[in-house]
């Protein structure tokens, strides 16, 4: 028995509340560890402690961790008993309700008229990525990507002469470190990098975004990618930009890399810079309509 629409909308509102008014455990743990590592009494340590206090207060009062509740990016995997259009309807209804409950700020602005729709619904908003699967049930993941960090995200085309970056993993390393330097603290460092290698301009960016659904403590199954992720995390932190660009040891909390086949003529490296307020959560509904959150 698939889940009733009304119950589904309630579950998605709860998904949004959990995502927007808190932070995933792995991200909180990474920030707590970083706060310990920073020099005692430094600006960097104080900033990270303020971040941790803010997250605790947001969770306690169900108020947004950050007032920029971001672009809403949903990833939906659905079994054969579900159809896309009703699922989209349920997600939109939940976004309206979550905005009315102030879990979300009205964040959908028409680029032509400048008018804010007032409920987070608009052309292409929220973004929903649907994947059909054989297994019954439903998995809905939500990522909230703030505007400040989106503005420092970017895309490089290899080769890049000025950076001495060729079409290989060393070239990737060079452009990613350049991007971290360019961002300074402006993306609300410490950041998490989602990186997409290859693809076309569009799919490369999509792959980069999808990497941000990964837990910080997972390990890339591809050993070459795992090694590059670890190296970029270490070297990014060696830049010394620190939380908010105040200086310090913690510039990045994580680096996650994915790949897509490219045409021979193109080699894109897309970098989705996520602020420390990396808000994501997931909802699972099994074949009997029983919901669980993580």
């Amino acid at each position: 028995m698939p889940v009733e629409t009304e119950a589904l909308v309630d579950h998605i509102v709860e998904l949004i509340r959990r995502s927007s008014c808190g932070l995933p455990d792995d991200v909180k743990e990474a920030i707590a560890r970083a706060a310990e590592d920073e020099e005692a009494g430094s600006r960097a340590q104080n900033a990270l402690r303020l971040v941790l206090r803010n997250v605790a207060e947001a969770e306690q009062g169900s108020t947004p961790t950050c007032q920029d509740t971001g672009t809403l990016i949903f990833h939906v995997e659905y079994g054969p008993e579900h159809r896309q259009r009703p699922l989209r309807g349920a997600i939109e209804a939940a976004c309206r309700e979550a905005t009315a409950k102030q879990y979300l700020r009205p964040n959908a602005v028409d680029p032509v008229t400048g008018k804010n729709s007032g409920n987070n619904i608009g052309d292409g908003a929220p973004f929903i990525d649907f994947v059909e699967r054989d297994e019954p049930g439903l998995h809905i993941a939500l990522l909230q990507k703030g505007g400040g960090c989106e503005n420092v995200s970017g895309q490089y085309s290899l080769p890049n002469g000025p950076l001495g970056a060729g079409r290989d993993l060393e070239g990737v390393r060079r452009v990613v470190l350049d991007a971290v330097h360019k961002a300074q603290g402006k993306g609300c460092a410490p950041g998490i990098l989602g990186i997409g290698l290859g693809g076309d301009r569009m799919s490369s960016h999509l792959e980069a975004k999808m990497q941000l659904y990964r837990r910080l403590d997972d390990v890339n199954p591809d050993p070459d990618m795992a090694a590059l992720e670890a190296r970029l995390l270490r070297e990014g932190n060696e830049l010394g930009i620190g939380p908010m660009g105040f200086g310090g040891k913690t510039t990045l909390l994580g680096v996650k890399i994915g790949r897509r086949h490219r045409v021979p003529a193109s080699y894109f490296v897309s970098i989705a810079y996520m602020c420390w307020a990396s808000r994501r959560a997931a909802l699972h509904i099994d074949a009997d309509g029983v919901a669980s959150h993580n």
Partner: peptide, 29 residues
């Protein structure tokens, strides 16, 4: 947050003002 440019820095110097950086994302606190 994010800092400001040379024009603002010159204005701070001339008029006796400062730019203060808050911690981005501290919505609730």
């Amino acid at each position: 947050k994010g800092g400001m440019g040379p024009k603002t820095a010159a204005g701070c110097k001339e008029h006796g003002a400062v730019y203060l950086h808050a911690v981005g994302g501290l919505g609730t606190s």
